[in-house]
């Protein structure tokens, strides 16, 4: 059985903290930071990164193109 592991990188300075990606994640991986970026926005981060499957839903809905998605299929 294959185990799919994913992760994302966020362009923190580009993120405006709209939170649309947070709701789009099927595995509740994402949350907005308590800190703010240079423009004063909270930015998205992986609160539960271990649950990410790299489905890219967050990146697909991101209006500002801040998210890159990576994925690895590990065979057990």
């Amino acid at each position: 059985m294959a185990n799919i592991k994913g992760t994302i990188t966020v362009d923190v300075e580009r993120c405006k903290g709209c939170g649309v990606c947070v709701g789009a994640c099927p595995f509740d991986v994402l949350a907005l930071s308590s800190e703010v970026n240079g423009k004063g926005y909270p930015f998205v981060c992986q609160a539960r990164g271990e649950a990410c499957t790299g489905c890219a839903n967050c990146a697909v809905v991101c209006p500002d193109g801040c998210i890159e998605v990576f994925r690895e299929i590990c065979k057990k």
């Binding site: 592991k5 994913g6 992760t7 300075e13 580009r14 405006k16 903290g17 709209c18 926005y41 790299g54 890219a56 990146a59 697909v60 209006p63 500002d64 193109g65 998210i67 890159e68 998605v69 990576f70 994925r71 690895e72």
Partner: peptide, 20 residues
């Protein structure tokens, strides 16, 4: 890990002026 999603190369580096 393989990259499965990234910004289109046709999007410029400008941060969009749109609201969050």
């Amino acid at each position: 890990m393989d990259k499965v999603y990234s910004r289109s190369a046709l999007l410029t580096d400008n941060v969009m002026h749109y609201c969050p």
